[in-house]
Amino acid sequence: MSDLLVLMAGLAQLSVIAVGGGSAVLGDMHRLIVDERGWMDDAGFARAYALAQASPGPNILVVGVFGWHIAGPLGLLGATLAMCAPSGLMALGFAGMRARLAGARWLRRVERGLVPVALGLVTASALLLGETALATWGSLPMVAIAITAATAGFVFLTKRSPLWMLAGGAALGMMLLG
């Protein structure tokens, strides 16, 4: 229980400085969970990340897996809440301010100006995620690259559900690596 409170306090602090999203503070999470507290080793940390990737939902749910490891279902809920509530309240405050300023010209321009930064960062996360995934394929990196490229093309060119590609990737992984 006290371990969970330590985790929650650490995550709540990271929540309000995690500009760019949860992945921006993944290194700090690693420091807390692996280096300082020793709750998991390196491989365990990487597997927790992969498990969260394989589950639907916002990527931030990886903290739920850390919480689960420390304190089961209660840990999963507590860690997610600690990571989401502080910054969520800030976002809610901002959204309220934005509503009062609705249509203000400077705000429209600020929002428009952030678009290219957002798109560059999304593209980079996709490539970095692909690189991380590559490592889990061992001697078959070309298969990983092919899956990533095929899925990117599928999503770009069609409006069909990407679930088909995710399921196909899972099936290939089970056949080739299982």
Partner: peptide
């Protein structure tokens, strides 16, 4: 189990492609 790890690897690669395709669409 190896099957589970293989499935996780496949999902991770496809998920990266999905993010990439979405980024292209938004651009």
């Amino acid at each position: 189990l190896g099957v589970v790890r293989g499935a996780l690897a496949g999902v991770a690669s496809a998920a990266a492609g999905m993010m990439l395709g979405t980024a292209f669409k938004m651009i």
